[in-house]
């Protein structure tokens, strides 16, 4: 089984003091001077994959782990750290572009890599990023690949037949499902998922090994999903005014609530369109 975990390195927003939240005229926060970390949801995905690999070994299933990020050369340190932790392959798609607000482009690059590699059974990634926070990348990637996607994943195991048992959180509680590969898991707020720490010895062993790097332009040439990434450019960001009144719809179940929503609110608005 080949597992790919996608991750992103982001500014550690917890390190920003309130008076450092300098919002520029494009509604972006100044983060150039802040430490960078692996996006916490992605960190959980990376650790869950390591746990999966160990569990798989226990049941006699071989699992190989790959880590993928889209970033500049500054991300190599994190990729080497992941190799020191047991990832067999660490891949970087070369890009210095700001992609936080462009999930379509990110999803297309990831899907293209998976399509071209043609050996990935399971993809894991954090369900959302701290910057941008659109929570769309895993869903768009799965849609492009036409793979099933499970959101809010908190644990994953594999059985001897190669079937994944996936635990996820839903509004009403915890769901455990059996899933045949291929599939994509969007990891949510998973407990016990701090990424383990590699030893100095393991880091030293990986230090001289180069990171596999792919060129974005070259990748695009071979992308079956090209239409999605062409002609998309982030021009502007605006702060959404969220100060508005809200109404909580009460109902016995989702169907009743949807009925109230439609008859009391949407029907009239739709008629006016």
């Amino acid at each position: 089984m080949n597992v790919l975990v996608c991750f992103k390195i982001v500014p550690d927003l917890d390190r920003l003091s309130i008076d450092d939240w300098m919002i520029d005229n494009c509604a972006r926060v100044e983060t150039r001077f802040v430490n960078k970390i692996i996006n916490p949801y992605d960190e959980s995905a990376l650790e869950l994959a390591l746990k999966l690999s160990e569990q798989a070994r226990g049941v006699g299933v071989a699992v190989t782990l790959q880590a993928l990020t889209i970033a500049g050369g500054w991300a190599n340190l994190a990729l080497k750290k992941l190799r020191a932790l047991g990832y067999q392959e660490a891949v970087r798609i070369e890009s210095e572009e700001e992609l936080s607000f462009d999930p379509e482009k990110v999803a297309t690059l990831i899907a293209t890599y998976i399509h071209n590699t043609n050996s990935i059974d399971l993809v894991m990634m954090g369900r959302q990023n701290s910057v941008g926070d659109n929570a769309k990348t895993p869903l768009l990637t799965a849609e492009l690949l036409k793979w099933p996607c499970i959101n809010q994943v908190t644990a994953v195991e594999i059985d001897t037949a190669g079937i994944y048992q996936v635990t996820s959180i839903a509004d009403e509680g915890v769901i455990t499902r059996k899933v045949k590969p291929p599939c994509l898991l969007a990891v949510g707020n998973a407990p016990f998922s701090y990424l383990r720490v590699p030893t100095l010895k393991a880091i030293k062993e990986q230090a001289a090994q180069p990171v596999k790097t792919l060129d974005t332009a070259e990748l695009r040439l071979f992308s079956p999903f090209l239409p999605l990434i062409s002609g998309v450019e982030l021009l502007d960001l605006k702060i959404v005014n969220r100060k508005r009144a809200g109404t909580i719809i009460e109902g016995k179940n989702a169907a009743e609530k949807a009925g109230i929503l439609y008859h009391s609110y949407l029907k009239g608005w739709l008629a006016d369109l």
Partner: peptide, 12 residues
């Protein structure tokens, strides 16, 4: 070094 790099460290 640009001191803005140090400010987050100093604040923590």
């Amino acid at each position: 070094v640009d001191t803005r790099y140090l400010k987050t460290w100093f604040d923590h």
